[in-house]
C-alpha cells in the first residue's frame, strides 16, 4: 500500500489549524482511505468550501478546489458530471455544509451523484472565532449565543438519509482507525456518500464551554459516540446522551452521472 504521506503537499505544511484541532486527524484519515483504495492520484479531486475544514484541500496533493462558502457541492457536481471517471471527494464543515450550503447538500443527496462528502463537524464556526452553527448543541455557548444556544441543531446523518444519500456513516477524531474504513467504504459506494466526522475544536468551542483540553474533548467523544449496535441496545432515554457511529445507513439507487450517460446515449450523443 502506498504511503499516505505522499498524498500531501508537504511544502504547504504546517497547516493553519490551532494546536489540538481535530481537522488534521480527519484529513489524515482521508489520505489513508485513498491509499487503502489505491485511487489514481491524478484522477482524484478534492473540493472544499470555506472555513477551517475547507483549508484541507490546499494541503492535499491532488487536483484541489477551494470554492466559495457553502458552494463545494455545486462545483463538485459539475466536475463529476463533466468527467465521471474522476473520484470526487468533498471536505466541508458544519456551517459550510449545513447552513449556507444546506440546500446544495440535500439536493446533491437527492440526485445520488457519486460524491463522497466528509463533514468535519466541530460544532462551531471556528475560522470566524466561535459563532454558533446549525450543529452547535443546545445550551452550548458561542460568541453569537452568549447565553447558550436554543436553536435546535440538525442531525446531519438524518438529513442526509431523508434527502436520499445511499451511504451514511459517522466517525470521530478519537476513533481514527475505523474512520479510515468508513471513508474508504464511502468512496467505494457508487452514489452520494456522507461521512460525518466529529472533531474537537478546543480553541473556539471547547474553551468557551469549559470542555477542557483537546485530550479531554477526545475522551468525551470516546464515551459519547458508541458503535451503532451498542447504541441500538440502549433505552430511548439512554440514547439522548449518546450518538451512534459506524455505517448508519446504506441504500441502492441509480447514480446520477451514470443515469445521464444513458440520456446521452438515448439522444445519440455518445456517437457525437
Amino acid at each position: 500500500m502506498r504511503d499516505y504521506e505522499t498524498f500531501f503537499r508537504t511544502n504547504r505544511l504546517p497547516h493553519i489549524w490551532c494546536p489540538g484541532c481535530g481537522h488534521g486527524i480527519a484529513m489524515k484519515a482521508i489520505a489513508k482511505a485513498i491509499a487503502k483504495l489505491d485511487l489514481d492520484q491524478d484522477k482524484t479531486v478534492i473540493v472544499s468550501g470555506i472555513g477551517c475544514s475547507s483549508r484541507a484541500s490546499g494541503y492535499m496533493d491532488f487536483d484541489t478546489l477551494h470554492t466559495a462558502h457553502g458552494r463545494a457541492l455545486p462545483f463538485a457536481t459539475g466536475i463529476k458530471l463533466a468527467n465521471p471517471e474522476l473520484n470526487v471527494i468533498v471536505i466541508t464543515g458544519d456551517g459550510d455544509c449545513m447552513a449556507i450550503g444546506g440546500n446544495h447538500f440535500i439536493h446533491a443527496a437527492r440526485r445520488n451523484i457519486d460524491l463522497t462528502v466528509i463533514l468535519f463537524n466541530n460544532n462551531i464556526y471556528g475560522m470566524t472565532g466561535g459563532q454558533a452553527s446549525p450543529l452547535t448543541p443546545v445550551e452550548k455557548k458561542a460568541t453569537t449565543a452568549p447565553y447558550g444556544t436554543f436553536d435546535r441543531p440538525f442531525n446531519p446523518c438524518e438529513v442526509a438519509k431523508t434527502a436520499g444519500a445511499t451511504y451514511i456513516a459517522r466517525g470521530t477524531a478519537f476513533h481514527a482507525a475505523p474512520l479510515v474504513d468508513l471513508i474508504a467504504q464511502g468512496i467505494q459506494n457508487k452514489g452520494f456518500s456522507f461521512i460525518e466526522t466529529l472533531v474537537q475544536c478546543p480553541t473556539s468551542y471547547g474553551r468557551r464551554n469549559k470542555m477542557g483540553s483537546a485530550a479531554a474533548m477526545l475522551k468525551d467523544m470516546s464515551e459519547t459516540v458508541i458503535p451503532l449496535a451498542a447504541y441500538n441496545r440502549l433505552s430511548t432515554e439512554e440514547r439522548n446522551e449518546k450518538l451512534p457511529s459506524g455505517v448508519l445507513h446504506t441504500d441502492v439507487f441509480p447514480e446520477y452521472a451514470a443515469e445521464y450517460a444513458k440520456i446521452i446515449k438515448q439522444a445519440g450523443g455518445d456517437k457525437a
Binding site: A68, L73, P74, F75, G78, A82
Partner: peptide
Amino acid sequence: GVILGASLAG
C-alpha cells in the same frame, strides 16, 4: 457553481 466545476474539468 456547477458550470464552474464543469469548466475546471474541461
